[in-house]
């Protein structure tokens, strides 16, 4: 299943990546600071509501299904086996149940948040985000993203060329040999390609004299018309939780 779901067109999908990341970090921080069972319950409900309204919908819930079972397992585990429990009803300990629920709910909250972030953000947007912190890192990652399909094509072509010369894949030894036969041309071609890319970077003024940049400013702003509401909410959410934690 692809990480990015382009079909869902909620308001959240149009938000600039930096704003998304900001909201994501604020919500995560808030979640980590909420330690009480009832507060956490409210928080997860809020995040779930936010996720659905942001356009994740059914896909999101489907994706979180295995984690729901995992959270239930954690709760059951602590209820039965946590030695810190004082109040017992037969096999079931009350304090263990509360502790397990806190851990399970927090896990669910984090999974929900991560999923909504990944579903609404392309890999390239994440790279652009990197480039706003370190420009070289962004350019390097974008180039890697560009070259990966090329390497795959090269590997395919090399495999076809060698097989048409009689290379076969039967038996473990010949398989290992076959990988070598395919990898050597691909590696050598990649080295040539790397040299060519160095020429191109130089020719396109990238480097010490040039201004290193891959993204326009608009993509990287946090405070835009569409992103104001979630940004303000996430700050309030975080502050609220931290205050609750301190008091």
């Amino acid at each position: 299943m692809p990480l990015y779901v382009a079909k869902e067109k909620g308001f959240w999908y149009q938000t600039p990546v930096k704003a998304k990341f900001f909201v994501f970090s604020m919500l995560l921080l808030g979640l980590l600071f909420s330690a009480q069972f009832n507060v956490l319950m409210a928080n997860v409900a809020f995040i779930l509501l936010f996720s659905v309204s942001a356009g994740g919908g059914i896909i999101l819930i489907k994706r979180c299904k295995p984690f729901v079972f995992f959270a239930l397992f954690i709760i059951a585990f602590h209820t039965v086996l946590n030695p810190a429990s004082v109040t017992w009803w037969g096999w079931l300990g009350w304090e263990g149940f509360i502790y397990g629920s806190v851990v399970g709910l927090r896990l669910l909250g984090i999974v929900l948040l991560t999923q909504i972030f990944l579903m609404s953000t392309t890999f390239k947007e994440v790279i652009l985000l990197f480039s706003s912190w370190n420009k070289d890192l962004g350019v390097i990652m974008l180039m890697v993203l560009g070259i990966l399909p090329v390497l795959y094509q090269e590997l395919n072509n090399t495999s076809q060329a060698q097989q048409s010369r009689g290379l076969h894949w039967k038996g473990l030894r010949s398989k290992i040999k076959a990988y070598l036969v395919m990898l050597i041309p691909v590696i050598i071609k990649s080295l040539y390609r790397a040299q060519g890319m160095a020429y191109l970077l130089y020719l396109r003024n990238y480097g010490e004299d040039g201004i290193r940049q891959v993204a326009t400013e608009e993509l990287l702003s946090t405070w835009t018309k569409g992103s104001r509401l979630p940004v303000v909410f996430s700050i309030l959410f975080c502050i609220g939780n931290i205050t609750g934690f301190i008091l």
Binding site: K124, L142, M143, L145, G146, R193, G196, M197, Y199, L200, L201, R204, N205, Y206, G210, I211, R212, Q213, V214, T216
Partner: peptide
């Protein structure tokens, strides 16, 4: 040889630099 992923990025890269 090329550097980035899409045609638009490839062309814009020179200008941005």
């Amino acid at each position: 040889l090329f550097l980035l992923t899409t045609v638009q990025e490839e062309l814009d890269f020179c200008l941005l630099n």
